[in-house]
């Protein structure tokens, strides 16, 4: 098939119409996880940045009439909690979900996955080759980037809860306080938490772009797939 498209890309290739199959890939819990995550990050990143670098506010009001910084912090903590439990749910779903949601998509343990990863890298990133055979679900390079993002999520949840523990009387955040001496104090935990925020921002830049890229180049409904759960497969690809 690769040869076929390769020649299509040549000067004399003939335009033609493709027939598509509609394939169910992303189950509802996976989609829910994705969009709850998006929502959480939309709150977490701006509020987190503001907590680290609050705007100068000049107000004639008395301090007791204001609580904006408290609200920003509350939003951060509340969405952080949702983010964390949503993440836990996704780990659970990585064991019971369909084959596209399974954990072994994300932790690359087979040689074939690494071979495929190199192929994806040369076709989609470096574009040394123009096409590659299409598979369903995540390609290994994407999966690896999600695995890195899972690690960042875990790190953010753990360091965030460790920092939060001193403001809470709940037993749960206190389970994470061992991280503080390990990293060398609250100041260091705050610094790492901050750096990992930038890590997730960079992930979002790459992720959103590459989804648009796939949709644009391959025309398989990559973007809408995360809304409907269905993706499209060219009949001739099968």
């Amino acid at each position: 098939m690769a040869q076929k498209v390769q020649s299509m890309a040549g000067v004399r290739a003939q335009p033609r119409i493709h027939a598509y199959d509609r394939v169910y890939v992303w189950e509802l819990p996976v989609r829910n996880y994705h969009w709850i995550n998006v929502l959480c990050l939309m709150f977490l990143i701006p509020t987190g940045y503001i907590i680290g670098n609050p705007q100068a506010v000049f107000s004639a009001n008395e301090p007791y009439q204001q609580y904006w910084f408290g609200i920003v912090r509350f939003t951060h903590f509340a969405s952080g909690m949702v983010f964390f439990f949503n993440f836990l749910f996704r780990i659970y779903w990585g064991f019971v979900g369909n084959r596209f949601a399974k954990w072994n998509n994300y932790i690359l343990m087979k040689k074939a996955q690494w071979r495929k990863l190199i192929e994806v890298f040369s076709v989609d990133i470096l574009q040394l080759k123009l096409t590659r055979p299409m598979g369903r679900g995540h390609n290994p390079l994407a999966a690896l980037s999600y695995f890195v993002f899972f690690l960042i999520s875990m790190f953010q949840a753990a360091t965030g809860l460790a920092l939060y523990a001193s403001m809470s009387s709940w037993w749960f955040p206190k389970l994470f306080t061992w991280i503080v001496p390990l990293m060398g104090g609250d100041m260091a935990v705050r610094q790492w938490h901050h750096m990992a925020m930038w890590g997730s921002i960079i992930f979002i830049v790459f992720h959103v772009y590459i989804v648009f890229y796939h949709d644009y180049v391959e025309g398989r409904g990559t973007t809408s797939g995360m809304i409907s759960g269905w993706e499209f497969e060219r009949k001739e690809d099968e």
């Binding site: 890309a9 040549g10 290739a13 335009p15 033609r16 493709h18 574009q127 025309g219």
Partner: peptide, 14 residues
């Protein structure tokens, strides 16, 4: 790099 690949289907659609 992938212009023709993308355009080829555009033409077909047209």
């Amino acid at each position: 790099r992938k212009r023709q690949l993308i355009n080829i289907d555009k033409k077909a659609g047209g």
